[in-house]
Each structure stands twice: as structure tokens, then as C-alpha cells.
């Protein structure tokens, strides 16, 4: 478990960003308001900065289900499956259909049944102090040995 203050989110996302390749997949678990979109914003803005393109707003995709970002040749798909009720809706969304060319970030991924080989799962937890959160990482495939114990 990694405890952090919300102001440290950029440091965390940068550490993850340096291990990212263009076809990775990140699943973000955690309650409403636990910091999933905030983390994604930091990651996408970090990628934009690294690739020297203008930063864009990164809004919650809850309503739209998906926002796509093109950062030079890198495509980022930011999903939010919060509103979906049935597993078949996930299938109809065509999620992972073009994932060979995209970095896929999914909030509320509980309904995904497909086994994605290289994926990093991050779970966000509340702390009693409202500006703090805890993170837990679980890696699969190339992320299997990923560790981030200290910032």
C-alpha cells in the first residue's frame, strides 16, 4: 500500500508513465471520488508534456463512457464503465477492439470479463485525512513485478 497526498499525484503518475508502452492497459478500481479521474488526468497531462504537445482538459468520462486523446502517434482511450449495467454492454462498447494501437485506461472495470495480458491494476482507498489516499498495485504480464512503495 502506498499512502500519498493528493498533491503528490504527479510524482506517482510520472513513475508509472516511465514504464508505459503504447499498448498497455490500466484498470482503476475504487469508490466514487477516490481519485481515479484525478490520477488519469495527471497521467494524460504527463504524457502530453513528455511528448511536447499542448495539455488538454481531462474530464470525467462517466456520461460519455469514453474520451479519446491523440498524443502524437499515441492513442489514449479513457473509459468509465460506471453507468453500464450489463456485461453485454461492455461487449457492445467495442472496448479493446483496437487496443493493439492504444493505451487503455478503464475506470470501474469490474464488468470486464476479458483477460488482458499486460495490465496494471490500481485500487484507490480513502484515508481519514481527506487530502490523502492509499494505492494498491497489482500487475499482470509485463507489469507483474511492478512495485511502487515510496514516492
Amino acid at each position: 500500500m502506498l499512502k500519498y497526498n493528493l498533491s503528490q499525484i504527479d510524482t506517482i503518475s510520472k513513475k508509472i508513465l516511465s514504464n508505459l508502452s503504447s499498448t498497455d492497459c490500466i484498470f482503476l478500481f475504487g469508490e466514487l471520488g477516490s481519485g481515479k479521474t484525478t490520477f488519469t488526468r495527471s497521467l494524460i497531462n504527463g504524457l502530453q508534456e513528455k511528448n511536447k504537445v499542448n495539455k488538454t482538459e481531462v474530464l470525467s468520462p462517466t456520461f460519455n463512457l469514453l474520451y479519446e486523446y491523440e498524443i502524437k502517434s499515441l492513442k489514449v482511450m479513457h473509459y468509465d464503465l460506471y453507468r453500464l449495467k450489463a456485461i453485454k454492454e461492455v461487449d457492445q462498447l467495442g472496448i479493446f477492439e483496437n487496443s493493439e494501437n492504444a493505451l487503455t485506461i478503464v475506470e470501474w472495470p469490474e464488468k470486464i470479463k476479458k483477460n488482458v495480458e499486460n495490465r496494471l491494476e490500481i485500487t484507490f482507498y480513502y484515508e481519514t485525512d481527506e487530502k490523502s489516499r492509499k494505492l494498491e498495485f497489482q500487475g499482470f504480464g509485463k507489469w507483474k513485478n511492478f512495485k511502487l512503495n515510496a514516492i
Binding site: 493528493l6 504527479d10 488538454t56 482538459e57
Partner: peptide, 18 residues
Amino acid sequence: RSRWPLDDNAPFLKGPGL
């Protein structure tokens, strides 16, 4: 297009925490 702002020149705004 998935994202298509009406005003492409709108200044970028940083999110919370920044």
C-alpha cells in the same frame, strides 16, 4: 470525433491538486 471543443483556443485549465 470523441472530443470536439467549440472553442479550440480556450485556455488549458489544470485540474484539482494543481
